[in-house]
Design a protein around this nucleic acid. Structure first.
Lengths: 186, 186
DNA sequence: TCGCACATGTAACGCGTTACATGATTAC
DNA sequence: GTAATCATGTAACGCGTTACATGTGCGA
């Protein structure tokens, strides 16, 4: 029960924003929840089909555009399922950082190696921060009157705060390692 | 190749600290890398056996203690394998936060629900911070002259900085949600 | 004596990604 | 014409956890 698939809930949640296709959903997820939650094709499409079979979402085929597109919409039952899940305590909080694992074993190699790893983290974090800032601005203008906005901005703010902290840590770590390098030379 | 098992490297790395048994390794991992990397029984023991078969670790049976204990030691080949991995760029950086996902969909339920989730995050973060602080003190006294110490403290510092940022975010988010609640009432 | 910590493993299951298959339209 | 994007799906594979199996010794 505990490790049961959460994909269904991510989907149901996305459909409270608007009815959409699986493809659209994936794009939106990447840009919105991408920093803390993502789903792959192989999870998404089968899950959508299952939800439809269970009556938690309805599906209509849209043939107006180029290729056939399946537009999914959340049902009353689906809404029930979602809010019920939202009320439960969160279970899944996974972090797995190969960068930190490598740093942890850094004593086995030259400090330059660890420096390089941290530099990469630094660059990636900076890139993430600017993406987040852009998303934030975009949401503010695009969803001015949506009840979702407040919550979305909170998750963005989370990314911003953690990102800034990460950046500062990187700079600190780089300093320490460089000082150490000089220390060993002299 | 890219998604190849990293367990082997985590094990090899741990064995650069000291020769140890699988059981000990698990304990140590939980306390040291637990916040950013962990392995379960079902990964650890088979991986140890494979590494031994490949000659990357050696294994001696210790019958002095209560139950038979297998002490693993990293070999020269294993050391080679490890340093080679350490030099490569990190690939695996996974984050999956159900708490944030629930917050993202918070507009679908009463603000009290989201408040509660954030409160849980806050408490968990505080607990993590005090565990980290304790570990840090412990390492300082226990491994004063180890070349590992500097690197270990850096990963702890990472946890501390991110943790503090998380804490501040929680407090901020709680304030925002409470303000919003009052706003709706009046 | 009951339960916990020590200690090693296996089997089953589900999670999640990747790669593949298909095919239309659009932009260069 | 050919590459990229839109669009949906499937199959295979490996990752990772959980639960189970087994047994010892120690402390409350």
């Amino acid at each position: 029960m505990s490790k049961l698939n959460k994909t269904r809930f991510a989907i149901l949640g996305m459909l409270t924003i608007a009815p959409m296709s699986g493809y659209e959903m994936r794009q939106i997820m990447l840009k919105s929840t991408g920093n803390f939650w993502s789903e792959s094709d192989g999870q998404l499409y089968p899950a959508l089909a299952r939800l439809a079979a269970q009556g938690l979402v309805s599906c209509t085929s849209d043939k107006s555009s180029a290729r056939e597109k399946k537009i999914y919409k959340i049902t009353v039952m689906g809404m029930d399922e979602l809010t019920n899940w939202l009320k439960q305590e969160a279970e899944t909080n996974i972090v797995r950082s190969e960068s930190l694992l490598k740093l942890f074993f850094g004593a086995n190699v030259a400090p330059e190696i660890s420096l390089e790893h941290i530099q990469v983290m630094h660059d990636e974090t900076r890139a993430m921060l600017s993406r987040l800032a852009e998303t934030s601005r975009h949401l503010d203008s695009e969803f001015k009157h949506s009840p979702h906005l407040e919550y979305w901005q909170m998750t963005i703010d989370y990314g911003l705060r953690l990102g800034v902290a990460k950046l500062l840590w990187c700079e600190d770590a780089i300093n320490k390692l460089q000082k150490n390098k000089r220390g060993k030379k002299s």
